[in-house]
Computed example of a mutant assay.
Amino acid sequence: MELFYKAQTEDGLSKSEILEGLKKSLEGKTVKKVLLIPPDFTRFHSNAGLITNLYYHLLKDQAQVDILPALGTHEPMSANEITEMYGDIPHDRFIVHNWREDIVHVGEVPGSYISSITDGLWDQGVGMEVNRLIMDPTYDLILSIGQVVPHEVIGMANHAKNVFVGCGGKTTINQSHMIGAVYGMERMMGKDHTPVRKVLDYALEHFLKDRPLYFVLTVTTAPKNVIKTHGLFIGNTRKVLEEAITVSQEKNINWLDKGIKKCVVYLDPKEFKSTWLGNKSIYRTRMAIEDGGELIVLAAGVTKFGEDSKIDELIRKYGYCGRLKVLELFKQNEDLKKNMSAAAHLIHSSSDSRFKITYAVKNITQAEVKKSTLIQQNTMKLLKDTIQIPYNQGGTH
Rank of each mutant, 00 (worst) to 15 (best):
K228Y: 02
Q8L: 13
L58S: 05
G395N: 10
K209T: 05
D385M: 00
G231Q: 10
L36W: 03
E101S: 14
K224S: 00
K261Y: 08
D123R: 12
T138I: 06
I296Y: 02
K384M: 09
K273A: 15
Q249S: 14
I134H: 04
F355N: 09
Q8M: 11
E271T: 15
A181M: 12
N279M: 02
Y113I: 10
S248Y: 07
G395C: 03
Q64V: 14
H91A: 08
H193R: 11
H177C: 13
V149W: 04
Q376E: 00
G166F: 09
N279D: 01
L54W: 00
G231N: 11
H151Y: 06
G278W: 02
L36H: 06
T358I: 11
H57W: 13
I114L: 09
V326E: 03
F215G: 06
I18F: 01
N158M: 15
T42I: 08
E307A: 12
D123N: 13
E307T: 12
L68D: 15
L232Y: 00
V104I: 14
K381W: 10
G155I: 02
L256H: 02
A360I: 10
T172S: 15
G292H: 12
T171E: 14
A300C: 01
D66G: 07
Y113S: 11
L232H: 00
V219W: 02
K29G: 01
M156F: 10
K331T: 03
E290F: 08
V130G: 04
N98G: 10
D201W: 14
A79Y: 14
D335C: 09
E10H: 11
R323D: 09
S349Y: 04
T396Q: 01
I114Y: 03
G259C: 03
D123K: 13
K198G: 12
D352N: 12
S350P: 07
I296K: 02
P90Y: 14
P150T: 06
A299K: 03
M340H: 03
D66E: 15
V109E: 02
T358G: 01
I289F: 01
V148W: 07
